[in-house]
Design a binder for these strands. Structure first.
Lengths: 219, 219
DNA sequence: TTTATATTCTGCAATATTTAGCCAATTTTG
DNA sequence: CAAAATTGGCTAAATATTGCAGAATATAAA
C-alpha cells in the first residue's frame, strides 16, 4: 500500500518470497475497503487521496490489525508520532526489503506471543498475568496479588489492552477497542481503576504525558 | 555530483559497476533540486555556484540522507570539519574508485545496522541503544545504564533524533521535527536533558560550537 | 416502571511542559 | 588581547495536558 508503484513492486517481491500473500492498494481510500481481509498492513505516511496517518486512524476505529508505517526521512515524521497514531512499527526509507520482512515477522511474533499467553500450557486457562496483576478473561475478574479488585467491564477491557503490550505507551483512543469517546472519558476510567487498585495499595497505571497511559511495572 | 566532468565519469562508472544507480548534478544548486530522489550523496567540497558545505547544510535542513564529501588536499578542509557539518564520511583526492565504492557501502552497512539494532533478536524490540543510553520507543522511556531517566516528550524526541545518527552534529533547527522554535528553546531542552542525565552522572550531549549539538560517546 | 449501576461527557482546577528573553560565561575571530 | 559571536542557565510567561468532581445518559436488574 504505497503510492510509488516501483516500491510496491519491491515490497511485493520481498514479502512473497517470505511466503506472505500480498494485496495492494494505491491509496488510502482503497486501502480502507480492503483491510478487512488482511493480516497486517504496510502504510506509506505520504499517500495520495488520504494520507497514511488518516488511513491508520480510520482503520483503528474498527480494528487492531498490525500496522507498519513507511516514511521518507524528510517527512518530518518519527517513531513517536507513528506510535502515537496507532502504528505497531515504523520504517524509514531507504530500507532493505530484508529489513521490512524482518519487521513484519517481528510484529507477528509479538502478536502471536500474546495469543499464546492467554492459553498457556500449564492449565491456568484464560488468565493473563503480568507481575501481581492477573486478569481472568472468562470470569472477567481482576486480581492483584491474589486479592480480587472489583472493576467494570470497560475498565477490564482497558486493562486487557494494556496487558497485551505491557511495555507500550498507549494513546487514549487505542484503549477502548476503537470506540470513539472523548479523552476525558478515558481519563475517567483510568481514574476509577487507580482508585480501586489503590485500595489494595497497588499502582497499575502510569501516565505518559503528551501520549497517554502505560501499564505500570506491577511489582 | 562533482564539478569536474571527467571525475564524475569515473565515479559513475565505478558506482554503476557496483550496481548503484547514479544521478549527476554539476553544481550545488542543481544538486538541491535532485537530492530527494537519491539514496546517498557524494559532494565535492569545492563546487561552482554553491560550495559543498553550503549545499550539505541546505540538504540537512530537510533530510538525513547519507552524504560523503570529496576534497583535494589543498582545500584546507579536514575530516573533522566535514563530519561536524553533517557529512557521514569524507574522502581526499586522489582516491581510487574502489575506495569510494567501499566507503559508500560502509555507509549503507552502518545505517542498515542501526535500523536492525532497533529489532534485535533478544526480544527487546522497539528499543534503540547507543552505549549506555537506551530509548524504549514503545514505552517512551529513556535509560542510562539501565537506570530510568524521566524526561519529557520533546526531550525524548530530541534524543531520538540524535541516536539515529549518533556521530553527527545537528543544527538546532534539525532537532525538533522541523517545528519552528527559537534557538534558545532548543538550548533550553538540551539544558534540561543535561541536568536530568547529570543526576545519574551521565553526559549525553556535546556542544559543537557554531553548529549545534551532537550525542556524546555515551560510555 | 423503578432502582441501581455503569458509562460518558463537561468544565475547570491542578500540573506539566514548552517557549523565549535576559545576561553572564565561554569560545571564536581578527 | 579585544571584539564579536555563540552558548548556558535562570526566570517567568504562555501553552498544553491531565485529574477530578459532578451531571447527564445509557444499560441492566429488580
Amino acid at each position: 500500500m504505497d503510492d510509488d508503484a516501483s516500491i510496491r513492486k519491491v515490497l511485493r517481491f520481498a514479502l512473497e518470497k517470505a511466503e506472505f500473500s500480498v494485496i495492494e492498494a494505491e491509496n488510502g481510500e482503497v486501502a480502507l475497503t480492503l483491510f478487512h481481509s488482511a493480516d497486517f498492513i504496510v502504510l506509506d505516511v505520504m499517500m495520495p487521496k488520504m494520507d497514511g496517518i488518516k488511513t491508520c486512524a480510520k482503520i483503528r476505529e474498527h480494528s487492531a490489525i498490525p500496522i507498519l508505517f513507511l516514511s521518507s526521512q524528510d517527512d518530518e515524521f518519527d517513531r513517536i508520532q507513528g506510535l502515537e497514531i496507532g502504528g505497531d512499527d515504523y520504517l524509514t526509507k531507504p530500507f532493505s526489503p530484508r529489513e521490512l520482512v524482518a519487521r513484519v515477522k517481528a510484529i507477528f511474533r509479538r502478536t502471536a506471543d500474546h495469543q499464546l499467553e492467554s492459553t498457556p500450557p500449564d492449565g491456568s486457562e484464560g488468565t493473563i498475568k503480568y507481575g501481581k496483576l492477573a486478569l481472568d478473561l472468562k470470569g472477567v475478574i481482576a486480581t492483584w496479588d491474589s486479592q480480587v479488585v472489583t472493576i467494570t467491564r470497560s475498565e477490564f477491557e482497558i486493562l486487557e489492552r494494556f496487558i497485551g503490550s505491557p511495555d507500550r505507551a498507549f494513546r487514549r483512543n487505542e484503549l477502548m477497542r476503537g470506540q470513539v469517546v472523548s479523552d476525558r472519558t478515558i481519563d475517567s476510567h483510568i481514574g476509577h481503576l487507580r482508585k480501586k487498585f489503590a485500595e489494595v495499595d497497588a499502582v497499575v497505571i502510569d501516565t505518559v504525558h503528551g501520549i497517554g497511559y502505560r501499564l505500570s511495572s506491577c511489582q
